[in-house]
Amino acid sequence: MSNTGSDSTADSKQAPKASGKFKWQQGDPLPLEINMKWCKACNICIALCPKQVFEPDRDGKPVQARPEDCTLCTICWVHCPDLAITSSYK
């Protein structure tokens, strides 16, 4: 994502074009890796994800319910206060 970011929602809407070709296929590893030991279930990633990739599980921690929608827009891992989200793709 570009660093111009005065308005990060605008960036996230353009993310499919900007970051290009990423499309998750069935059988690939999930787009994001979430460290459940560090996650405190603050729900920021669930709320800020522009594609609603996450769903809370029983503890309120994020689960990637719709990985095919993920565009690797960087919003979730840039906003994770516990550094729990990374991606093996980017």
């Binding site: 030991k37 279930a41 603050c42 906003h79 994770c80 206060p81 516990d82 550094l83 729990a84």
Partner: peptide
């Protein structure tokens, strides 16, 4: 994890 509350902006 850090000492901060869940969702604390300091982590961001």
């Amino acid at each position: 994890p850090t000492v901060w509350c869940a969702g604390c902006g300091h982590g961001i």
